[in-house]
Amino acid sequence: MERIIVCLKPVPDPKQWDEVSMDPETQTLIREGIASVINPLDKHAIEAALSIQGVLGGEVVLLSMAPPSAASTLREGLAMGADRAVLLSDRMFAGSDTLATAHVLAAGCRWLGDNDLIICGNMSIDGSTAQVGSQLAELLDLPNIMHVIDLDLGEDGSMVVTRKIEHGFARLRGALPLVISVRKELNKPRYTSFTGILAAESKEIKVLSNEDLKISPEVIGIDGSPTKMAGIELRRFERAREKLDGSVDEIVESLAGRIYQYGII
């Protein structure tokens, strides 16, 4: 094994999502003061890479398209045990949809050279599109498998992967190089040790801009994204909110009455 790439997305900490508000003028989300964390499923991707590295060697490289401030999030991944990180950062990338993002990540993969395995989290917790893994694979002309819940590496360089399907699973065998997207059932991400945190301080985070990657502006950023935002709103849930009062018996009587009215019984 020469190199395993883990694609990593810094996401706003889900614990603070209640603090998101919207600017009614610009129709953009105000997310100031919300910390970034590693997308939860990407930790499972890092864990998978590290455990494969433990058996077959090679280096584990974290790859991310994000603003320069994401370096601290990448540092957390390095503290888990990844060897180095590459941060793809350029104003030209801002506003990229999933296809444009895949173009940027694909350029990052090519910049790194020959890669045996590229591992992504199955979806991000903020956008939740689950589209980038398949699109990255297509742009690199590599096969890919999503929804991965188990994997075994053969000595012949093949990989046997178990993926979820409706009400069951499928097992597949693929040759490397391969792109896989993993679910949380695959493994339990390791805890970061104090020595891991110390070691991460001296690990390299290489920042590349589009001067290094030279991607056509026509396929990246807001202008290069085929999908456009046509509107955004905070979701509101409005219901009658009628509170039933009285003794438990009265409440039960009243509940059964409603259920009867609804035509259920």
Binding site: W17, S128, P226, K228, G231, E233, L234
Partner: peptide
């Protein structure tokens, strides 16, 4: 998006 708290309209 954002766990469903935000609704976006997308066009192509």
């Amino acid at each position: 998006g954002w766990g469903g708290g935000v609704i976006a309209t997308i066009a192509c």
